[in-house]
Simulated scan of single mutants.
Amino acid sequence: MIRDKRSEYLAALVLVGPFIVIYGLLFVWPTIQMIALSFTDAPLIGPGEWVGFENYIDILNHRLFRNAAWNTVYFVVLTVVPNTLISLAIAMAVNRLKGWQQGFVMACFFLPYILPVSVVYLIWNWIIDVQYGLIQYVVRPFNGGEPMSLTRTIPFFMPTVAAVTIWWTLGFNVLLFIAGLRNISPEIYEAASLDSAGRWRQFRRITWPLVWPVTALVLTIQLIAQLKIFDQIYLFSIGGRQDPTIVMVQYIYKLAFQQNKGGEGAAAATILFAIIIILSVLQFQALRARGQK
């Protein structure tokens, strides 16, 4: 039995070993290096002197950091829950279709997800363009008949980018929800119909509780993704004022790559890394605990 256990451990090590090595080299070691760099005054490339927690104190007292943190939280509020609810609604509608119609509609919602962010930016930059954008036909009646640049007007910048992000990313969430809905036995709905349960009651008593694990997963994935938002914000803010709409990753980019402050950039990245881990773990555990009640 000892030999059998040793052979099992050896087989497991052979199978898991490459992943552990790659994960350690590409994630664990760079993370350790980033944390160590955050306690120095090093530039982006090159050594630096040990300064302790000075970088963290300076960043937390920096007005631009607080602005970036607020904008990131605001963007999370605009995207995470709305994206999840819209994806669930679409998945429930698509799940009622059959045959080629279901496949076609699923493909239509998923296709934007495979587009690179540069293509998404070009598409929507054309749609919201002040001179010939299609969205201006909707905006003009609410702006006294005048066109409005949604990405150059600060109050509308975040909601506009949030809407683009939801359009771009909901396809993957729809697939996850459809997979969860297909695991619900049709016999449960048939029994509920025999008990005169309407659609709303079926959703509240059957669909929502049984699809809750998928909902918790989608919410956690969206929270992590939107806390790391950068591409869309950066592209849509080109040519305009970036500081009022700056987010956390953009703030890190500004410190490290534009101002050559590698130590402060690493400190800001470490703070964001800790926030993502803490919030994602707390949210997932809270959502899972709610689903087990």
Score class of each variant (00 low, 15 high):
Asp231Cys: 10
Gly171Asp: 00
Ile233Asn: 12
Thr169Ile: 08
Pro213Phe: 01
Asp195Tyr: 13
Phe156Ile: 13
Ser118Cys: 09
Arg241Asn: 12
Arg205Tyr: 13
Ile135Lys: 05
Tyr189Ile: 08
Thr215Tyr: 01
Val119Ile: 15
Pro186Cys: 14
Ser193Lys: 15
Ile114Gln: 00
Val161Trp: 00
Gly239Phe: 04
Tyr234Phe: 14
Pro213Leu: 03
Phe157Tyr: 00
Phe236His: 02
Leu170Glu: 02
Phe110Pro: 12
Ile221Ala: 10
Leu217Ser: 12
Pro112Thr: 03
Gly171Lys: 00
Gln226Tyr: 13
Ile206Tyr: 00
Gln136Tyr: 02
Leu170Asp: 04
Arg204Ala: 10
Trp212Gly: 00
Phe110Ala: 00
Ile184Ser: 11
Lys228Ser: 14
Ser149Phe: 02
Asn125Cys: 14
Gln222Pro: 08
Asn183Phe: 11
Pro112Asn: 06
Phe156Gly: 14
Thr153Ala: 04
Lys228Trp: 08
Arg201Asn: 03
Pro209Lys: 01
Tyr137Gly: 06
Gly171Met: 00
Gln242Val: 14
Val214Ile: 11
Phe142Met: 15
Gly145Tyr: 02
Trp168Glu: 08
Arg201Tyr: 12
Pro155Ser: 09
Gln131Trp: 13
Pro186Gly: 09
Thr165Cys: 09
Trp167Pro: 13
Arg152Ser: 10
Gly180Tyr: 02
Ala197Phe: 10
Gly239Val: 11
Arg199His: 07
Leu194Phe: 05
Trp126Met: 15
Val130His: 03
Tyr189Thr: 08
Tyr132Arg: 10
Ala163Trp: 08
Leu175Thr: 00
Arg152Met: 13
Leu115Asn: 07
Leu181Asn: 08
Thr160Tyr: 01
Ser237Cys: 08
Val130Tyr: 05
Leu170Ser: 08
Thr215Cys: 06
Trp200Ile: 10
Leu217Val: 09
Pro147Trp: 00
Leu122Phe: 05
Val138Tyr: 07
Leu115Arg: 07
Arg152Val: 14
Pro159Gln: 06
Gly144Val: 06
Leu210Gly: 08
Tyr113Glu: 00
Leu122Gln: 04
Val247Ala: 09
Val139Arg: 06
Val161Gln: 03
Phe156Glu: 12
Gln226Cys: 14
Met248Ala: 04
Ile246Val: 12
Leu217Thr: 07
Leu181Thr: 13
Trp212Asn: 01
Ala225His: 15
Val218Gln: 02
Leu122Glu: 06
Ser237Tyr: 03
Phe230Ser: 03
Ile123Ser: 07
Phe109Val: 15
Tyr234Thr: 09
Gln222Ala: 15
Val164Ser: 11
Gly180Pro: 08
Leu170Gln: 04
Leu210Asn: 03
Cys108Glu: 05
Ile233Asp: 07
Val130Arg: 04
Ile221Arg: 12
Arg182Asp: 05
Asn143Pro: 13
Asn143Glu: 11
Pro147Phe: 01
Ile154Asn: 11
Gln226Asp: 10
Gln131Val: 15
Leu219Gln: 05
Thr165Phe: 15
Val130Lys: 07
Leu111Phe: 10
Thr151Glu: 02
Tyr234Ile: 04
Pro213Gln: 04
Gln232Leu: 15
Tyr132Phe: 13
Ser185Thr: 11
Ser149Gln: 04
Leu194Ala: 14
Ala162Met: 03
Trp200His: 05
Ser237Lys: 06
Phe172Arg: 11
Ala225Arg: 15
Arg205Pro: 03
Leu176Ser: 00
Trp124Ile: 07
Met248Asn: 07
Ile221Gly: 14
Asn183His: 13
Val247Met: 13
Gly198Ile: 06
Val211Lys: 07
Trp200Met: 11
Ser237Ile: 03
Leu219Asn: 09
Thr245Cys: 03
